[in-house]
């Protein structure tokens, strides 16, 4: 029984991981660009982006999942996600990526604004372009500063993926819960905690290594 449960949970955890990894792949770069938008000198860019960040951070992710999945069908009369598992996963991914990119963008913004003006000026007076100054000088200093808050968000994301089950994405909590109905046992659900714990433990070690790696400068 234990082996059977473990295998079933592993399958669910595979889905959890897939959602986790793809969300990060999209949300980290997207968050950087949203942070540029939120700092733009153009009010026409800055204010809509800030409105977006407010809405996304100001409403529950659970609700966003439901709206992203059911919204198009209700509003457009057309379920853009298609039917089946893949459609639900795509809707979940979009909701997660957008939600996390808004949180990341605020961390990026804080990091970027914490870099002293003198770093930019030193680059400019040496004849560098804005782009060169940002990518060659500023970004790594920003990354060093934001590793702790970003790792916090990323570890939260591991557990937030469980919200995807409201639109029937078969992630690990779903797999665990299934045993309540099918076998009348609840321990598989509790057992899912071990998977989260081991995975977030690995991430903690990884982030610690990154912090160490960036310790060579101050």
């Amino acid at each position: 029984m234990f082996a059977e449960v473990t295998l079933s949970l592993l399958a669910g955890f595979g889905m959890t991981l897939k959602l986790f990894v793809l969300t990060l792949v999209i949300a980290l770069p997207l968050g950087l660009f949203i942070s540029f938008g939120s700092m733009s000198r153009l009010a026409a860019v800055r204010y809509p982006i800030r409105l977006l960040i407010w809405v996304i951070r100001g409403t529950p992710l659970l609700l966003q999942l439901l709206i992203f999945y059911y919204g198009p069908g209700i509003i457009l009369g057309n379920n853009i996600w298609g039917s089946g598992d893949e459609g639900r996963f795509a809707a979940a991914l979009v909701a997660f990526a957008l939600n996390y990119s808004c949180y990341f963008s605020e961390i990026f913004r804080g990091g970027i604004q914490s870099i002293p003006k003198g770093q930019y000026e030193a680059g400019y007076v040496l004849g560098m372009t804005r782009g060169q100054v940002f990518w060659q000088i500023i970004l790594l200093q920003v990354i060093k500063r934001i590793v702790p808050p970003i790792s916090n968000e990323i570890i939260t994301l591991v557990k937030d993926t469980s919200l995807a089950r409201v639109i029937a994405v078969y992630e690990i909590i779903w797999s665990g819960q299934a045993f309540i109905k099918s076998a009348g046992i609840i321990w598989p659900l509790f057992y899912t905690g071990v998977f989260y714990l081991v995975f977030s433990g690995l991430l903690t070690v990884l982030f610690h290594m990154i912090e160490k790696k960036l310790d060579y400068f101050k």
């Binding site: 002293p116 003198g118 770093q119 000026e121 030193a122 680059g123 400019y124 007076v125 040496l126 004849g127 560098m128 372009t129 060659q136 000088i137 790594l140 200093q141 060093k144 060579y216 400068f217 101050k218």
Partner: peptide, 29 residues
């Protein structure tokens, strides 16, 4: 950028790039 290249500026607070070595700081631009 072109106009700036006529001038160099040494700041009161150095403003070295912390992630680069002394030589990399000099060679970057």
């Amino acid at each position: 950028r072109q106009k700036r290249l006529h001038f160099g500026l040494v700041f009161q607070s150095f403003n070295l790039f912390p992630q680069y070595t002394a030589l990399q700081n000099v060679c970057l631009a």
